[in-house]
Design a binder for these strands. Structure first.
Length: 150
DNA sequence: GCCAACGTTGGC
DNA sequence: GCCAACGTTGGC
């Protein structure tokens, strides 16, 4: 079982939205590195759910991989903002897994708190200039975040 | 709202 | 294949 972190702007789709919907397709990722991580996700993997941009910034809860990555339908939809004219059904470019709600933290584990935690030094999220919206997380890092949340 | 960091595009 | 221009991300 592997651990990941996905970013979302809460006014677009928050952990509370995921709680309400229970399962959602993680569509709209248009970065190759992030896409490759999405494709590596296996059913049952654990995903830290990160709220970006909006205060409080940080990990807001946990999701799990419910369905492994399949072609992202938004790439084929001309009216969708994520439409990609270079993608075809025969040769899709973008993929999305389904994520399932697991838990919303009572209090968000903030970015500032995480920066102060020595054991998270190596976390991709905290590396300078990291804008990756889908990232691998080690078990140790996952455990540390969970501990901070409790 | 600002801006640094980064990714992508496209002319050459 | 280089690189300038441009667009986006995301913390502050």
């Amino acid at each position: 079982m592997n651990y990941w972190l996905v970013k979302s702007e809460p006014y677009v789709f928050s952990i509370q939205d995921l709680k309400r919907d229970k399962v959602t397709l993680w569509d709209g990722v248009r970065n190759y590195q992030a896409r490759n991580f999405l494709k590596e996700m296996k059913k049952g993997d654990t995903v830290l759910y990160y709220h970006s941009n909006e205060d409080p910034i940080g990990v807001a809860g946990i999701a799990t991989v419910y369905k492994e990555a399949y072609p992202d339908p938004t790439q084929f939809d001309k009216r969708n903002k994520y439409f990609d004219p270079k993608a075809t059904k025969e040769n899709p470019r973008w993929f999305c897994p389904d994520l399932k709600f697991k838990k919303a933290f009572k209090e968000i584990v903030t970015l500032a708190e995480m920066r102060e935690n020595k054991s998270l030094e190596e976390m991709v999220l905290l590396k300078k200039g990291s804008r990756l919206s889908v990232q691998p997380v080690t078990k140790k890092q996952y455990d540390s975040v969970l501990k901070m949340a409790s």
